[in-house]
């Protein structure tokens, strides 16, 4: 078989590629941009510009009404010496260290149970996800009711086992554990994600392990968890970021208008103090510096998690 050469046209210039309708290549490059422009405009106006402007405000004294006055790094110096910033950071880190593992383990346990639920799985999936649909403000109010030291449901349950439950909402030692307990109520999305990951674990690997005499626990530890480790990693990263920015539930329960003037230092999370500085005391410049610091902290923590993931997260097929 041979390929026939195209007939020569003698001295004629090589034919130009046919011009497509729709303009030149340069113009065509704009077409995709045009289609994503609603998102781009939204991103620039509602994300990029505010972030850059927040960075600028962090270098100023700004009370919303009067023009910002440039202060240089004064706000950042004040941050370092502000005891409440340190308290809020400590509270936030402690809460994150308690809530992220607790939420992960609880989600995993629920997902493993759901995997065995058979035909009832659909009902339980919905049931577990419903609390996630509850507005966080409602969860904050619910927290006060469920964890009330006198009449709360949790202490009622503990009472069945002869345990005299603590004053979760007023005892500083129990405020953060109480918030963690409440956060477990809204792990629905993590449960669904983990369940999807569990269903992707190849049966042949589990069968092989079973044939080799591996117990349920060893199959979980040595087969299942390594395979779903990318999902676990994703959940840890997302939950960590969310915990570092915790606000609504704690604010509603301990700092909102319904709580009159009683607040509890143990629940003063960083985002709450930031909110107070910005919108109660009108220290918008200082609050912006706090936001920048929180952004930096989240970046560093996430970067550490990314580095650790190289060692502990197993990607099948090497795909990252």
């Amino acid at each position: 078989m041979s390929l026939a050469a195209p007939a020569s046209t003698g001295t004629a210039a090589p034919a130009r590629p046919p011009r497509r309708r729709g303009g030149s290549g340069r113009h065509r490059a704009w077409i995709p941009l045009l289609f994503i422009s609603p998102w781009l405009v939204g991103f620039l106006v509602f994300m990029a510009y505010p972030v850059v402007y927040t960075g600028y405000l962090s270098l100023t004294d700004y009370d919303v009404i009067n023009d910002p006055t440039f202060l240089g790094l004064d706000n950042y110096r004040e941050l370092v010496s502000d005891e409440k910033v340190m308290l809020a950071l400590r509270n936030t880190f402690v809460y994150t260290l308690m809530s992220v593992p607790a939420q992960l383990v609880f989600s995993l346990v629920l997902a493993l149970l759901l995997q065995r639920a058979g035909r009832a799985a659909g009902f339980f999936r919905t049931a577990f996800f419903l609390p996630k649909m509850t507005p966080p403000v409602a969860v904050g109010v619910l927290l006060l009711m469920l964890l009330n030291g006198q009449s709360g449901l949790l202490n009622e349950l503990l009472g069945w086992f002869g345990i005299n439950g603590p004053n979760w909402t007023t005892d500083p030692d129990w405020v953060k554990p109480g918030l963690v307990v409440t956060s477990l109520w809204t792990v629905g999305s993590s449960v669904i994600i983990l369940l999807a990951a569990l269903q992707q674990v190849p049966d042949e690997l589990l069968d092989a392990a079973r044939v080799d005499g591996a117990s349920w626990w060893r199959r979980l530890w040595h087969v299942v968890l390594p395979i779903i480790s990318p999902t676990i990693y994703f959940i840890v990263v997302v939950d960590t970021i969310a915990s570092l920015q915790s606000f609504t539930e704690a604010y509603t329960a301990f700092f909102g208008a319904g709580n009159t003037t009683y607040s509890n230092d143990a629940a003063l999370f960083y985002a709450i103090y930031l909110f107070q500085q910005a919108f109660e005391f009108l220290h918008m410049g200082y609050a912006s510096a706090m936001a920048v610091l929180l952004f930096a902290i989240v970046m560093v923590v996430t970067a550490v998690q990314v580095m650790l993931s190289r060692r502990y997260v197993h990607y099948t097929g090497g795909a990252r």
Binding site: Y53, L244, Q245, F247, A271, A291
Partner: peptide
């Protein structure tokens, strides 16, 4: 309220107030 929310609210302030310095 997450960081996005906080930045968003700050942003709203900036858009409304900051631009009108």
């Amino acid at each position: 309220m997450r960081l996005g929310g906080v930045v968003g609210v700050l942003a709203a302030s900036c858009l409304v107030a900051g631009c009108a310095q």
